[in-house]
Protein backbone atom coordinates (compact mmCIF):
# COMPACT_ATOMS: atom_id res chain seq x y z
CA UNK A 1 0.00 0.00 0.00
CA UNK A 2 1.41 3.40 -0.90
CA UNK A 3 1.25 6.35 1.48
CA UNK A 4 -1.17 8.28 -0.71
CA UNK A 5 -3.53 5.29 -0.93
CA UNK A 6 -4.35 5.77 2.76
CA UNK A 7 -7.43 7.70 3.77
CA UNK A 8 -7.40 10.13 6.70
CA UNK A 9 -8.37 8.52 9.98
CA UNK A 10 -9.81 10.45 12.90
CA UNK A 11 -9.38 9.49 16.58
CA UNK A 12 -12.26 10.82 18.66
CA UNK A 13 -11.58 12.03 22.20
CA UNK A 14 -13.71 13.90 24.68
CA UNK A 15 -12.78 15.56 27.96
CA UNK A 16 -15.34 16.79 30.50
CA UNK A 17 -13.98 19.10 33.18
CA UNK A 18 -16.04 20.85 35.83
CA UNK A 19 -14.95 24.09 37.49
CA UNK A 20 -16.08 26.20 40.41
CA UNK A 21 -14.61 29.58 41.18
CA UNK A 22 -14.61 31.15 44.61
CA UNK A 23 -15.67 34.70 43.97
CA UNK A 24 -13.51 36.33 46.62
CA UNK A 25 -14.60 39.13 48.90
CA UNK A 26 -15.63 41.63 46.22
CA UNK A 27 -17.18 39.04 43.91
CA UNK A 28 -19.08 37.42 46.77
CA UNK A 29 -20.72 40.69 47.79
CA UNK A 30 -21.59 41.42 44.15
CA UNK A 31 -23.40 38.11 43.68
CA UNK A 32 -25.06 37.98 47.09
CA UNK A 33 -26.38 41.53 46.69
CA UNK A 34 -27.62 40.82 43.18
CA UNK A 35 -29.33 37.60 44.25
CA UNK A 36 -30.85 38.80 47.53
CA UNK A 37 -31.53 42.48 46.87
CA UNK A 38 -31.58 42.73 43.08
CA UNK A 39 -29.01 45.51 43.22
CA UNK A 40 -25.85 45.91 41.15
CA UNK A 41 -22.64 46.69 43.04
CA UNK A 42 -19.48 48.10 41.49
CA UNK A 43 -16.26 48.96 43.30
CA UNK A 44 -14.66 52.39 43.52
CA UNK A 45 -10.90 52.75 43.84
CA UNK A 46 -10.23 55.13 46.75
CA UNK A 47 -6.95 56.17 45.13
CA UNK A 48 -8.01 57.22 41.64
CA UNK A 49 -11.79 57.27 42.02
CA UNK A 50 -12.43 54.94 39.11
CA UNK A 51 -15.63 52.89 39.47
CA UNK A 52 -15.17 49.37 38.14
CA UNK A 53 -18.10 47.37 36.78
CA UNK A 54 -17.87 44.42 36.92
CA UNK A 55 -16.07 44.86 40.23
CA UNK A 56 -12.57 43.50 40.74
CA UNK A 57 -10.13 42.97 43.58
CA UNK A 58 -7.31 45.29 42.58
CA UNK A 59 -7.21 48.62 40.75
CA UNK A 60 -4.63 47.84 38.05
CA UNK A 61 -3.28 51.36 37.42
CA UNK A 62 -2.95 52.05 41.19
CA UNK A 63 -2.04 48.45 42.15
CA UNK A 64 -4.36 49.07 45.08
CA UNK A 65 -6.39 46.30 46.73
CA UNK A 66 -9.95 47.48 47.16
CA UNK A 67 -12.12 46.48 50.10
CA UNK A 68 -15.73 45.37 50.41
CA UNK A 69 -16.48 48.80 51.89
CA UNK A 70 -15.25 50.39 48.66
CA UNK A 71 -18.22 48.87 46.81
CA UNK A 72 -20.93 51.22 45.56
CA UNK A 73 -24.33 50.60 44.03
CA UNK A 74 -24.51 51.55 40.35
CA UNK A 75 -27.33 51.75 37.79
CA UNK A 76 -29.73 50.18 37.53
CA UNK A 77 -30.02 52.20 34.33
CA UNK A 78 -27.18 52.60 31.89
CA UNK A 79 -26.34 53.41 28.29
CA UNK A 80 -25.41 51.21 25.32
CA UNK A 81 -21.79 51.87 24.36
CA UNK A 82 -21.67 49.40 21.45
CA UNK A 83 -23.67 46.41 20.27
CA UNK A 84 -24.06 43.64 17.71
CA UNK A 85 -26.62 41.07 16.64
CA UNK A 86 -25.48 37.44 16.61
CA UNK A 87 -26.84 35.18 13.85
CA UNK A 88 -25.41 31.76 14.78
CA UNK A 89 -25.78 29.40 17.74
CA UNK A 90 -23.00 28.17 20.02
CA UNK A 91 -23.51 25.44 22.66
CA UNK A 92 -21.84 27.59 25.33
CA UNK A 93 -24.14 30.57 24.75
CA UNK A 94 -27.44 30.40 26.66
CA UNK A 95 -29.40 32.30 24.01
CA UNK A 96 -30.89 31.29 20.67
CA UNK A 97 -29.84 33.30 17.65
CA UNK A 98 -30.62 35.90 16.64
CA UNK A 99 -29.85 37.79 19.83
CA UNK A 100 -28.25 41.11 20.67
CA UNK A 101 -25.12 41.65 22.73
CA UNK A 102 -24.17 45.06 24.03
CA UNK A 103 -21.57 46.77 26.17
CA UNK A 104 -23.53 48.72 28.75
CA UNK A 105 -22.13 51.39 31.02
CA UNK A 106 -24.29 51.59 34.13
CA UNK A 107 -24.98 54.99 35.64
CA UNK A 108 -22.19 55.77 38.09
CA UNK A 109 -19.72 53.26 36.63
CA UNK A 110 -16.64 54.09 34.57
CA UNK A 111 -16.41 50.76 32.76
CA UNK A 112 -18.97 48.81 30.75
CA UNK A 113 -20.14 45.22 31.05
CA UNK A 114 -21.19 42.85 28.30
CA UNK A 115 -24.77 41.61 28.49
CA UNK A 116 -27.79 40.81 26.37
CA UNK A 117 -30.38 43.29 25.11
CA UNK A 118 -33.97 42.10 25.02
CA UNK A 119 -37.52 43.38 24.55
CA UNK A 120 -36.17 45.47 21.69
CA UNK A 121 -36.25 45.58 17.93
CA UNK A 122 -32.69 45.34 16.54
CA UNK A 123 -33.41 48.09 14.02
CA UNK A 124 -34.25 50.49 16.85
CA UNK A 125 -31.08 50.05 18.95
CA UNK A 126 -28.62 52.90 18.96
CA UNK A 127 -25.37 53.76 20.73
CA UNK A 128 -26.14 55.98 23.69
CA UNK A 129 -29.57 54.43 24.13
CA UNK A 130 -30.77 54.31 27.75
CA UNK A 131 -31.42 50.78 29.06
CA UNK A 132 -32.49 49.16 32.33
CA UNK A 133 -31.96 45.60 33.62
CA UNK A 134 -34.68 42.94 33.67
CA UNK A 135 -34.02 40.63 36.62
CA UNK A 136 -35.01 36.99 37.06
CA UNK A 137 -37.57 36.45 39.78
CA UNK A 138 -35.85 33.31 41.09
CA UNK A 139 -32.23 34.47 41.26
CA UNK A 140 -29.45 31.86 41.60
CA UNK A 141 -26.44 34.10 42.20
CA UNK A 142 -24.97 34.24 38.72
CA UNK A 143 -24.64 36.85 35.99
CA UNK A 144 -27.82 35.60 34.28
CA UNK A 145 -29.80 36.75 37.32
CA UNK A 146 -29.91 39.77 35.03
CA UNK A 147 -31.98 38.30 32.15
CA UNK A 148 -31.11 41.15 29.84
CA UNK A 149 -31.30 44.91 29.54
CA UNK A 150 -34.23 46.59 27.82
CA UNK A 151 -34.81 50.11 26.56
CA UNK A 152 -36.06 52.60 29.16
Amino acid sequence: MTDNALWPFEVEQHITAMSKYYAGKIGSRFYITLRDEGKIMAVKCPRCGKVYMPPRETCGPCFYNMKVDDMVEVGPEGVVETFTQVHYNEPVIPREAPFVYAVIKLDGADTGITHYLGDVDYENISIGMKVTPVLENERQGNILDIKHFKPV
Binding site: R56, E57, G60, P61, F63
Partner: peptide, 21 residues
Amino acid sequence: EFFEGQHMTDCWLADSTGAFG
Protein backbone atom coordinates in the same frame (compact mmCIF):
# COMPACT_ATOMS: atom_id res chain seq x y z
CA GLU B 1 -2.67 25.18 31.52
CA PHE B 2 -6.44 24.87 31.90
CA PHE B 3 -6.18 23.20 35.34
CA GLU B 4 -8.92 25.51 36.61
CA GLY B 5 -10.74 25.54 33.29
CA GLN B 6 -9.37 29.01 32.57
CA HIS B 7 -7.09 29.89 29.67
CA MET B 8 -4.94 33.01 29.51
CA THR B 9 -4.89 33.52 33.25
CA ASP B 10 -2.60 36.50 32.70
CA CYS B 11 -5.69 38.37 31.43
CA TRP B 12 -7.89 37.59 34.44
CA LEU B 13 -5.05 38.25 36.88
CA ALA B 14 -3.52 41.33 35.23
CA ASP B 15 -4.69 43.70 37.98
CA SER B 16 -3.83 41.59 41.00
CA THR B 17 -0.41 40.50 39.71
CA GLY B 18 0.55 44.12 39.05
CA ALA B 19 0.97 43.36 35.35
CA PHE B 20 -1.40 46.13 34.28
CA GLY B 21 0.35 48.17 31.61
